[in-house]
Amino acid sequence: MYDLHDLVQMKKPHACGTNRWEIIRMGADIKIQCTGCGHIVMMSRRDFDKRFKKVLVKAAPKADADN
């Protein structure tokens, strides 16, 4: 569904007018950063799932460092 560094859209736009957020931390809580103004919001995974609308851009897969 969503992963670290994905750009996501939430149901309501941010006060700056942008509705694009980057997921910068995942765990029991999820931290997202507004791509417009840089504001950071941390919320529980349950709250995030209720406010999440869709993934706009999937993060590029990491290159394997062992090669």
Rank of each mutant, 00 (worst) to 15 (best):
Y2M: 13
Y2R: 06
Y2C: 10
Y2F: 15
D3G: 14
L4I: 12
L4V: 03
D6N: 10
L7M: 08
L7W: 09
L7C: 04
V8P: 01
V8K: 05
V8H: 00
V8C: 00
V8N: 01
Q9S: 11
Q9L: 15
K11T: 14
K11G: 06
K12W: 05
K12T: 11
K12N: 13
K12H: 07
K12D: 12
P13R: 13
P13W: 08
P13Y: 14
P13A: 12
H14E: 02
H14A: 15
H14G: 06
A15M: 12
A15E: 12
C16N: 06
G17P: 06
T18C: 15
T18H: 07
T18R: 08
N19H: 14
N19F: 14
W21S: 04
W21D: 00
E22N: 09
E22P: 08
E22H: 09
I23K: 08
I23Y: 04
I23V: 14
I23S: 07
I24T: 13
I24N: 07
R25W: 04
R25F: 04
R25K: 12
M26T: 06
M26W: 02
M26R: 05
G27F: 02
D29S: 05
D29L: 09
D29P: 00
D29F: 11
D29N: 09
I30N: 00
K31P: 00
K31Q: 01
K31V: 09
I32H: 00
I32S: 01
I32W: 01
I32R: 00
